[in-house]
Structures are given as structure tokens and as C-alpha cells.
Design a protein around this nucleic acid. Structure first.
Lengths: 139, 139
DNA sequence: CCAAGGGATTGGACTATGTCTAATTCTTCG
DNA sequence: CGAAGAATTAGACATAGTCCAATCCCTTGG
């Protein structure tokens, strides 16, 4: 578990560590993602970065999120057909997804035991395993 | 594993078993899903049902797929941010997802051992557990 | 300091998936 | 037959995300 504070200076370092040129917009977007440690979607990221003064366009938000993904600085979580969540936690873990509220909660990878994955067809390699536990309020 | 043939007559029975009034369009859509045993998305379903004569509108395709989901006659698989796959196999199982080709392959639930799911916060119940193994061609 | 070049950002048009609505058609049944 | 209710429809609409050409900005060399 990370204990770093998510200052803008630390964001600059983080970006550099991932080979990303730290620009104003990228710093703000990284800060939004990491300081609201959680699971934001693109429009939430945009709302947060533009809360005070509108300074980042939709195109840049999407460009930047995709750049972060490519450089593996963040991860995407696909649980809702209508939008992608971006997860600043790249340490292996899984998720509870509350289908009523849309809330995502982490499950530590240590907490789940997974055995007996079938062999892959030849010529394929595993990119990752996502476990999503869909939950809802009891009736 | 089902061995039934997916004739239109059998589709009528299947619809009735799920409390769905079997209309022409619903029979065709069920037939498309079950005879192409696999994982289709809405536009593929529409293309198949309208292959010979165009007789089913986009609205009906979506209405019907959502009705089938509601009645638990099929399942949705959310792995691609841009579209939903519909899965006629409602027996518990998981998926390989080939991120390069978009291909989905079933993993029998018996083949995977899953232990130690963390306790749910009170007031929540589990709807289901989806395991997605993302794979890609080895480089 | 200035100018050039290249990367970053931008508005806005565009695409694709999916939803909504009001009008129409189909089916059922007295 | 005729009324009522269910199903279907075309097309407008909503929304997430992509694309592109124009502009901006930052760095570097002279």
C-alpha cells in the first residue's frame, strides 16, 4: 500500500518514472486520479481538473488517460457497459462492483485464492486476470 | 451441456419456459443467439436476423435482448468498453478474452477454484462472480 | 533574445452504441 | 367484427469516445 502524498510535485516524479513528459494538464489529471484515490471515469476526471478554471479539453482528458494506460501508470476497469473506470492502483487486485450504486471497491489479491486456470491455447499469453464480484443491496 | 437442437420450434418452448410471449422477431433473435452458440453483440444479432429479409428493427433487437436478460434467458458479458456481448450459456462459467481479436471463449466453472472471497459489507448480497482472463497472441 | 521545430492541446465535427417516444401494427378474445 | 393490450417500428435523441486540422507552447540552437 502506497503512503506517498499526492502532491503535484510527486505527480511530476511519477510521470517521469513512467516516461511521460509532465505538462500542466497531465499533472492535473494525474493529481485528480491519485488524490481521489478511487475509481473515476473520464467525465469525473474532467470535472475535477476543470473545477476551478476550465483549462483542459475533453480531447486532452481522453488522450492523457489513454497515454497513462499505455505507460501502465493506471489501469482500466470494465464493469459498466456505458463507461470505463480508471484505477490508479496498478498493484494486482480485484473488485466488488455494486450494481445499484456503481461503486467499485478493491479486493486485495491476497484475499482471493485462484487455482486451476485451464491451459491457454498455444500462441497465447495471459495479460491479466480480472475478478469482478457483482453485489447489490439485499432486498 | 445442452445437446438440444436449436430449431425454431425449440426456441418457442424456450421462450415460453422463461415466460416470454414468442413472437416472430423474438423467435428469430433467440435462434440467432442459440444456434450461433457463442458470444454475439447487438449489431451481429441484428445482422443475422435480417440476413435474408430485413424484418427486425434496431429498437426491437435491443428491446428483445434486454427482455431476454431480464428473464435470465441469456447473460451479458462486459469485457469490451465499446459493446456488450450476449451469452446464451447461463450455466455458471467464466471467460478468456482475446484482446487482439475480440474473441471470447468459455471456461468451465469446474476448472477454476476460487477461495477466500472477502466478506461482503452488511446489507449486500452477491449477484455473481465474473472472472475474465485477458489473453493475447505471444509476441 | 529570437526563431524554428516538434510535441501537446484544442474545438468541434464525427462515429457508434444504445435509449426513448409516439405512431402503427399485430394478436387475442368477447 | 371491433376493442384492448401487447409488440414493433422509424427516427430522433443521448452519450462516450475518437479524429483531425489548427493553434499553442516549450525547448533548443544560433
Amino acid at each position: 500500500m502506497r503512503t506517498t502524498e499526492y502532491t503535484r510535485d510527486n505527480m511530476v516524479d511519477l510521470l517521469r518514472q513512467h516516461g511521460i513528459n509532465p505538462t500542466h494538464q497531465r499533472i492535473e489529471i494525474a493529481h485528480a486520479l491519485f488524490s481521489h484515490y478511487g475509481h473515476l471515469c473520464a467525465d469525473q476526471v474532467m470535472a475535477i481538473t476543470n473545477a476551478k478554471h476550465s483549462e483542459t479539453s475533453k480531447a486532452t482528458v481522453y488522450n492523457t488517460l489513454n497515454l497513462f494506460l499505455e505507460k501502465k501508470m493506471i489501469r482500466e476497469v470494465i464493469v459498466d457497459p456505458s463507461k470505463v473506470f480508471y484505477d490508479p492502483n496498478t498493484y494486482p487486485h480485484h473488485h466488488f462492483y455494486n450494481t445499484a450504486t456503481g461503486e467499485l471497491t478493491d479486493i486485495d489479491v491476497e484475499d482471493i485464492g485462484l487455482t486451476g486456470l485451464p491451459q491457454l491455447p498455444p500462441g497465447l499469453v495471459t495479460e491479466g486476470v480480472d475478478i469482478i464480484v457483482r453485489v447489490r443491496p439485499s432486498p
